[in-house]
Design a binder for these strands. Sequence first.
DNA 1: GTGATAATTGGATTGACTCCAATATAGGAG
DNA 2: CTCCTATATTGGAGTCAATCCAATTATCAC
Lengths: 158, 158
Amino acid sequence: MAGRHDPREEADGDLASLVRSAGLRVTATRLAVLEALARRPHADAESLVADLRRRLGSVSPQTVYSVLSAFVEAGIVRRIEPAGSPALHELRTGDNHHHVVCRRCGATADIDCAVGARPCLTPSETHGYVLDEAEVTFWGICPACQQKSARKPKNSKP
Amino acid sequence: MAGRHDPREEADGDLASLVRSAGLRVTATRLAVLEALARRPHADAESLVADLRRRLGSVSPQTVYSVLSAFVEAGIVRRIEPAGSPALHELRTGDNHHHVVCRRCGATADIDCAVGARPCLTPSETHGYVLDEAEVTFWGICPACQQKSARKPKNSKP
DNA sequence: GTGATAATTGGATTGACTCCAATATAGGAG
DNA sequence: CTCCTATATTGGAGTCAATCCAATTATCAC
């Protein structure tokens, strides 16, 4: 039914082979999850459900949770859990990059790791722990929230 | 009723003045929370409730949550929220130290920050965020869980 | 002591998941 | 191409951590 060079098929093919190479079966739901993550990095489960519903008609939240867990376990999706946000997900794995999170609105962006290899930092005293990762979360105020503060500072007259 | 040099009173006095200097009222519950955190750093709310019940007879979980929130807001307690654990609390504040968390059992220990001042790391590209803190979580296996693995490795014969 | 302010409590509610058992589907064997 | 079985998806119930609210109780400045 599909032509050999249909670009949609090619994009799907990439994602499909990614799923297959992880030892998982290829389904429309799974491809849609990967596609959504490619479009919106740092998505939480709820917004993925909303996204997939727009695209596929209906998906249960449980399915999204299970797809994400399968992907995380297979190593093709990375899950981060910043304080105050539900778990976020992204396709960039293995490069040990870090994150900035806005204290006001939770907006999250990637910060490249200068070192690359993990763990990228090594403390002098590890209390006997064998370390495999250093996860760095930078906290601050995102550009949008800075703008809001500038317009409506906390100590402005009511 | 109490003598002038009762050591318990002195210890309490330290904690009491800590609470008072944070602009908060001094109550038995609050002193007990601080005392418990001094004994067991990285305690979660639930274990603090258990601890206080042993000590004071009865406390509601809501009270502990509210005491902890008040302390965190006042800056005399630091709250960390490692993925997979409920929020943990400690008295060390302001020194910007970091944490190691065991992937198996969640055991948490402090790692001193070499830099001290916050944010202790500065990425080159911040996407316009104004940063105030770099939170580092080291992930690994604690000594106790290493022992367990050594005795009962995953690929041992059944 | 007394009263204004702050702390504690119970109960209801939320959010983000997780568990389990039943049904549907992918994809290799034949 | 068809069938079979392991794997996916789903609904529903249940959990765990935490938060909201209104009512009661206690602290401490006066």
